[in-house]
Each structure stands twice: as structure tokens, then as C-alpha cells.
Design a protein around this nucleic acid. Structure first.
Lengths: 219, 219
DNA sequence: GCAAAAGTGTTGCCCCTACACCCATGT
DNA sequence: ACATGGGTGTAGGGGCAACACTTTTGC
């Protein structure tokens, strides 16, 4: 393999995260406004060019940190986007990830070296974005909906436990549909992902509800 | 983005295919022997560096053609491998695919510009390979097993129709386990993927079996 | 007539969906 | 007492796994 072969010189890898949260029952996604070219002034997903000395997730986490100040975000691989003209600067292949955080527990840097703003956008109000990021988000939302039905992604919202009605609200926000209370309980309890505690609390109603916790993951 | 930034200069994308076949009831994978460095003389999966003017699958198909002479192979995205040291030459991220063909219907080029040999290896006799290709194969086999249960990947074996016992043998070879005849028929017929014809033929036994065809895919 | 393969049905289990009533509490 | 939300059970459908006998035909 020849390092300077013009056929594959000037290629790079984008690592890109679709970071979601729930805000007042709405699924939102974190976007940053680009300070530099290409696509200066446009909103975009967090992410950027992978460095040579980083593994993929490592580079992604650095990019997330650099563009938002966020740390310790768990992400899951989503997809690959590699159309030959997806970047105007050079040939870039994007490896995309999804993540979800509790926006109320973190501070997002509004301005960084490379960004002039950062906002949570409702997923039905996403503007025209840099690169192919609109397409990446559409795919990421689909992945997110699948993922929450299989994994404990949503535990980030409940470090101190949760009631089932509380958890159900989050599921409903992401899936964008109402779920049957009885069926939801059965499904979740069957997933072997959460365990009841002895405590109870009041969520929205007047009646106490049992508090559950996500199981610690064993390796 | 600066094209010559040393932090992400000299990166590239590998497009890599795990191409399978079934030979005498055994799942086999196509490997080629590398003529050049790195990993000169080692066996490897088909694939190579993506060019700037190609989409991912396009580059993959060129690579498959260059290294085996094979054309018109349908592939499905499998995964991404991006550990920072996975290539000794420069920073490469691999986008991997799976495909399956009927080896008895094609001619594999034993020697090309870049390869000195090409062979089908039983998946339990795969030698130590170039790069991280052993790991890629392990993942690809898992993906293949999932994929044949959801798609019509196996139609390549039966351009002229097939009997159910015949198809079942192929499934059993790939899944590496025996299937119940009755359950297999029900499952396959329920998938809405195949249709019966009026013809019958003898497969292994003495009794005629009905011939089915894969449905043409409508878009 | 027997060996070898093709064809066929039923049952139980699990998961999913749909759906209605009682309970506890704060006002 | 009533409004609000928490908690519960049942029945039907679909997919999956387990399991045995009859049919055809070549020898």
C-alpha cells in the first residue's frame, strides 16, 4: 500500500454522535453551530475528524468534549455513511453513534473553539444541517427506538431509581406513542433489566408507586 | 478542516468482504493470498483501500473483482473495525460486508496483480490472517446467520428453483445445526419469500419433492 | 418388503396486543 | 364524593420448539 497514492490520498474518518435527551416529554437532539468552514454558520451534529492516535469511540468522545464540554457519554455504534461526495473538503467516511443523556444534569458549552452555539432541538424541528447530518439523524432515531427496547440505555435518566409510570413516560416520549400500562409493566419486568426496591414515592398522581432500579451490568 | 493536518493525515478506508459459499454441506469463506506488503504471503479477506471517487460498495466490488475476478456479488453491510493500530502502514478504518455465492458456478482467479492464490476455507480451518481479518470473519459469520433468517440471501444458490429439503440443507450448513423438517417448512413458507411452482423433482431421496422459487423482489 | 426421503398437525410456551376494574390519596 | 393516577388479569393471535406417522419409490 502506497501512502501517497493519489487514488486514496486525503481521506479521513468522521466520528459523529446523535446525542438525545428528553425534555418535557419531547425527544430532543443536541446540535452545535459551526464556527468554521465548511458549512460555517450551519447547525450540525457533534463529531468531527478522527485523529490517527485514537480509537473510534475515543475520538468521538474527544470531539463531543471539544464541541460541547460533555464527558462520559455512553454511545452505541449506529451506522456508516460513505457517499463519495459527502464532504466538500476531502473524502470522508462517517462512523455514526447514538447516545442519550439527561440534559437537566449537565451543562452544555455554548461556545467553543469550533462552535458558536449549542442547542437541544425537538426532533421534528431540526433545521437544515451541515453535511449529510439530517440523514444521519433520521437513521439514528430509528436506531434509538430499537435500542431502548433491547438495552438499558435509559438508565442515565434514573441514577436514583424510578417508578414504572415514570419510566413509561420516557419510553412514550421516544417511541412517540402511548403504551398500555399493564403491557408495559410486563414487558419491562420480563426484560430482566430492572429490580424492585423496598421504597415507594409519588410521581405524578396522589398514590405512591414502587421504586425500581436498573440492574448493575455484570460482565 | 485542514487537509494536511498531521493529526489526521494519511488515513484511509478499507472495504472488506467476507464472501461465503457452501461446499459439500460445509460453510466456506473465500480467502486470497497477499502478494505484497504488508502481510505479504499471508491469507486475507478480499477487499482493500477505497478510492476517492468511489462509493463504499462500489469500491468493494472493484476490490473483489481485482482480487478474485468475481463480479455482481450482492453484499450487505456488516460492521466497522477501527482500532488505531489495525494497519501497520497507515491509519485505516475498515467497513465490512458479507456476501454469499455459489462457488460451483463461478471461476475464481487464482492469481492477480495483488494475489498469488485464492481458496475456499472451511470456517473452522481459517488460518492466521492479515490485519484483523480473523476478527472480522468471526463477526461476519454471526451476521450471516442472522441475515439468512431475515432475507433471501440464499437465492444465489437456486436460480432455477429448489425443493424445501434442498434449501433446508443449506440453512443447516450455515447455522451448523439440524432443523426440524416440519418447523422449517412452516417458518420458510411464513416468511413470504418463496412461492411453489407446479414442478417436482428428486433431490436426495427416491420421492419427488415440490419445487419452489424465491419471489422476485419488488421495490 | 424394506430402506430412504418427502410430506403433514398438534400441543405447549412465550411474547405481544387489547381491554376494564379496583385502590389509595389529596382536594 | 370525586378526580387522579397506580396497580392488576385475562383472552386471542403469532412465532417457535418438540414430537410420529404415512406416502412414494428404488432396490
Amino acid at each position: 500500500m502506497e501512502v501517497n497514492n493519489p487514488k486514496y490520498e486525503h481521506q479521513g474518518i468522521h466520528v459523529i454522535a446523535s446525542i438525545f435527551t428528553i425534555d418535557k416529554g419531547k425527544l430532543k437532539i443536541l446540535l452545535v453551530k459551526r464556527k468554521n468552514n465548511p458549512y460555517q454558520g450551519l447547525w450540525a451534529l457533534t463529531g468531527g475528524a478522527l485523529y490517527n492516535d485514537e480509537d473510534l469511540e475515543e475520538g468521538l468522545k474527544r470531539e463531543i468534549y471539544e464541541k460541547t464540554g460533555l464527558e462520559n457519554i455512553e454511545v452505541k455504534l449506529a451506522n456508516v455513511f460513505g457517499k463519495k461526495n459527502r464532504s466538500p473538503v476531502m473524502r470522508m467516511v462517517a462512523v455514526t453513534y447514538i447516545g442519550i443523556i439527561d440534559a437537566s444534569k449537565v451543562e452544555i458549552a455554548k461556545s467553543t473553539l469550533k462552535t458558536s452555539n449549542a442547542e437541544w432541538f425537538s426532533i421534528d424541528e431540526v433545521p437544515h444541517l451541515a453535511y449529510d447530518h439530517n440523514e444521519i439523524i433520521t437513521d439514528a432515531i430509528k436506531k434509538l427506538k430499537e435500542e431502548i427496547l433491547k438495552t438499558d440505555l435509559l438508565k442515565v435518566f434514573f441514577p436514583n431509581g424510578f417508578t414504572l409510570p415514570e419510566l413509561q413516560k420516557v419510553y412514550e416520549s421516544i417511541l412517540e406513542k402511548k403504551l398500555d400500562r399493564r403491557n408495559f409493566r410486563k414487558k419491562i419486568l420480563n426484560m430482566d433489566m430492572i429490580i424492585p426496591t423496598e421504597e415507594e414515592k409519588i410521581f405524578e398522581g396522589k398514590k405512591k408507586a414502587k421504586i425500581y432500579k436498573f440492574k448493575e451490568k455484570e460482565e
